[in-house]
């Protein structure tokens, strides 16, 4: 790919053709405030915060401007300062001020931008403050949707359309009344939402937050145990409990994405009813046994059957290698083609 050189705030930056000015700047370690940009999604330029000045063109948004050879970019100017500051101040005075009770406190993009732009209480006092009190959608068992904390960046809408392909949500209504809504503004659980949580993972503010999630003390890289796809993930562990799961962006299998089970269905890991050893039925009751005992028992009993007396059904939760082994065993050892798989249904 062709590389280009441009200047941002006097610093020469190398970028690849097709990148936006914002991407080039961020890659070069130059921060430009942005709210609606997400590296996984196509840029839309709706937050209007990533303003820059480009020599010969004037002020424009950097997320929608492709880099060009020799481009001279400034990230600060009086015009940028005015437009960006007012936009951020407007977001703040129309946003709930109870940051401490917000699940995103500390990881909130709006806070980050406000800190960068610098908010003066005196200036905020001049503005008219309005916060909405719309009902929180708590219909989903895994996450909450709080439209009052939403900044309408549209990242959730684009995630659902571009990444998940479900298009369960979109903008609805106009002007100040605009909200992110399901079809017919029904609770999210009645929509096409698959609860995958991809939008929750990308929401820059506290509008989409997981329920009952506690911050982990450490993270452990693992592979999802649910199906044979093998999504890479990080188990967030606190004490000896898994309290959060997030997709591993570096995993070539899922590139950070997870489904509802992988992301939210981790309760089984520490569940008291989870089986931790094999059970063998003795005298009508299951009793705990070692793996050797259990395998010996299975092998001994299988020895009494051959050919069509036997059939095997395997699972999508097994890996390809495990599935291969079972069909080999069925055909070569048991001498039958009676092998099937749950995902074939």
């Amino acid at each position: 790919m062709k590389t280009l050189r441009l200047t941002i705030d006097g610093v020469t930056v190398t970028a690849r053709e097709g990148m936006s000015v914002l991407e080039a700047a961020l890659e070069a370690g130059i921060y430009i405030p942005h709210l609606c940009h997400h590296p996984d999604l196509k840029p839309v330029g709706v937050c209007r915060l990533c303003l820059v000045e480009i020599a010969g063109r004037g002020m424009t948004i950097s997320c929608k401007t492709p880099v060009e050879e020799g481009m001279v970019v400034k990230t600060e100017s009086p015009d940028i300062e005015l437009a960006r500051r007012v936009a951020v101040e407007l977001l703040i005075v129309n946003h709930h001020a109870d940051c401490l009770s917000c699940a995103k406190d500390g990881a909130c993009k709006l806070q980050e931008i406000a800190r960068y732009v610098g908010i003066e209480e005196e200036r905020l006092q001049r503005l008219r403050r309005t916060t909405r009190s719309l009902p929180v959608d708590s219909s989903n068992p895994f996450f909450l949707r709080d439209p009052n904390r939403c900044v309408l960046c549209g990242i959730c809408v684009r995630t659902c359309e571009e990444i998940v392909g479900a298009s369960a949500i979109d903008y609805a209504f106009r002007g100040y009344a605009t909200v992110i809504s399901t079809l017919g503004n029904r609770p999210i659980v009645q929509s096409r939402c698959e609860s995958c949580g991809e939008c929750v993972a990308r929401c820059p503010v506290g509008a989409l937050v997981p329920r009952q999630e506690r911050n982990p003390a450490r993270e452990v890289r693992s592979v999802c145990a649910y199906c044979g796809v093998g999504c890479g993930l990080y188990l967030g562990v606190r004490g000896n409990q898994v309290v959060r799961v997030r997709g591993a962006a570096e995993s070539p299998v899922n590139r950070g994405r997870l489904c509802v089970k992988g992301r939210y269905g981790h309760g089984y890991i520490g569940h008291p009813e989870r089986l931790t050893t094999p059970l063998i039925k003795r005298d009508g009751r299951f009793v705990e046994a070692s793996w050797d005992e259990a395998l010996d028992l299975v092998a001994a009993r299988l020895a009494g059957y051959r050919g069509d007396q036997f059939a095997a059904l395997t699972s999508a939760r097994c890996t390809n290698e495990e599935n291969y082994l079972l069909q080999k065993f069925t055909r070569a050892v048991m001498g039958t083609h009676n092998i099937d798989h749950c995902a074939r249904l």
């Binding site: 937050c47 936009a87 407007l90 503005l127 309408l152 209504f173 002007g175």
Partner: peptide, 22 residues
């Protein structure tokens, strides 16, 4: 204009409302 703003971009959605309120 504030009622007819599509609500997508911040300056228009919140700025026209702010001006209207003032």
């Amino acid at each position: 204009t504030q009622k007819e703003s599509c609500g997508e971009c911040v300056p228009c959605r919140l700025g026209t409302k702010q001006m209207m309120d003032i």
